[in-house]
């Protein structure tokens, strides 16, 4: 993609510059970054989609996968057709019990042909938050859309570029996704808290720690959000007259400087937490805990 061989015939400009997608005279390694970003995001999209479609093994005892939290509706059994043509109701393993779901069982009105998973009802919120995040915007504009794929490297489709105007104006509503994300932090900390109580008894298990770290990494990501930083103080010009706003802004700025780090760490950890709960529920890994 980046070789000079594929450049357009008219592509060399005065100054010896190249003018085509992926063309550059850079000799350093500019490809590893966007490639790693592309693969990392793709892997997460594939994993989270697959995990969301499972609809089972998302809860083990007092551990709930963050990809299914909160459980709005649960489903305890599903209909399967045997090879002999019989229809049976079978229990769904690792599903949230009814008392854990905000509104109980999946409504009867849910169409039969439409697949159901508790994850479908909530994933749009964290999804929208990450999709409109200023860091992820940079990441996917660069690695999925090649605009630009690297600095001083020819971007994709010159004629079509309109920045964040026109079709991408919705990115300006990122702060609304943030409001939901803050609510989710509360919910995930509640889940982490519940991770320390099994059948009412306090204890610690691997899962309790995994869930607690999950909520914490997500909080570090969320409170380093550019919109959060703006809303708590960045919008003001007189910091000295608003010491509380200034203090909040400074803390948000500390996290904001590490926003990319927490974006990746929390993304990885959400996936890992889901995998952990899933694997424990399926018996792939032992349930190490003080509950014995």
């Amino acid at each position: 993609m980046s070789t000079e061989a594929n450049r357009l015939p008219t592509a060399t400009l005065p100054g010896g510059h190249l003018d085509c997608t992926g063309c550059t005279h850079r000799t350093d390694d500019w490809k590893t970054g966007p490639t790693a970003t592309f693969l990392g995001l793709l892997l997460f999209i594939v994993y989270s989609t697959a995990a969301a479609f499972q609809g089972e093994h998302y809860m083990y005892e007092n551990y709930l996968s963050p990809m299914y939290s909160p459980v709005v509706f649960t489903q305890l059994e599903r209909t399967v057709t045997t090879p002999e043509g019989e229809t049976l109701k079978v229990a769904i393993p690792g599903a949230a019990p009814v008392e854990h779901a905000w509104f109980g069982l999946k409504p009867d009105a849910w169409p039969e042909w439409l697949p159901f998973s508790p994850a479908f009802l909530i994933l749009a919120f964290p999804g929208a938050f990450r999709f409109t995040c200023y860091y992820y915007r940079k990441a996917y504009y660069r690695s999925f859309w090649a605009n630009p794929i690297g600095c001083a490297v020819g971007p994709f489709r010159r004629g079509l570029y309109r920045g964040e105007t026109h079709l991408l104006l919705f990115q300006n509503l990122h702060r609304y996704a943030l409001y939901f994300a803050i609510v989710f932090i509360g919910i995930l900390y509640y889940d982490a808290y519940m991770g320390f109580f099994r059948h009412g008894e306090f204890g610690v298990g691997l899962g309790s720690i995994v869930l607690l770290l999950n909520a914490t990494f997500l909080a570090c990501y969320t409170f380093g959000c550019h919109s959060f930083r703006h809303l708590v103080g960045g919008r003001l010009n007189w910091f000295s007259k608003s010491p509380l706003a200034h203090a909040l802004w400074k803390r948000a700025s500390f996290l904001n400087e590490r926003h990319m780090f927490f974006a990746w760490l929390s993304l990885f950890w959400v996936g890992f937490t889901d995998f952990f709960v899933r694997a424990t529920s399926m018996g792939w890994i032992p349930d190490i805990s003080t509950w014995g």
């Binding site: 940079k138 964040e164 550019h226 930083r229 960045g234």
Partner: peptide, 29 residues
């Protein structure tokens, strides 16, 4: 709105000004 916050300006600034995060994004907000 034409800036898509991809941060190449910040990467090349010899004065290490955090152009995108401290300047452009706060203005966009």
């Amino acid at each position: 709105g034409w800036c898509n916050i991809t941060r190449c300006c910040t990467e090349v600034c010899p004065e290490s000004i955090n152009i995108t995060d401290n300047g452009i994004i706060p203005m966009k907000e």
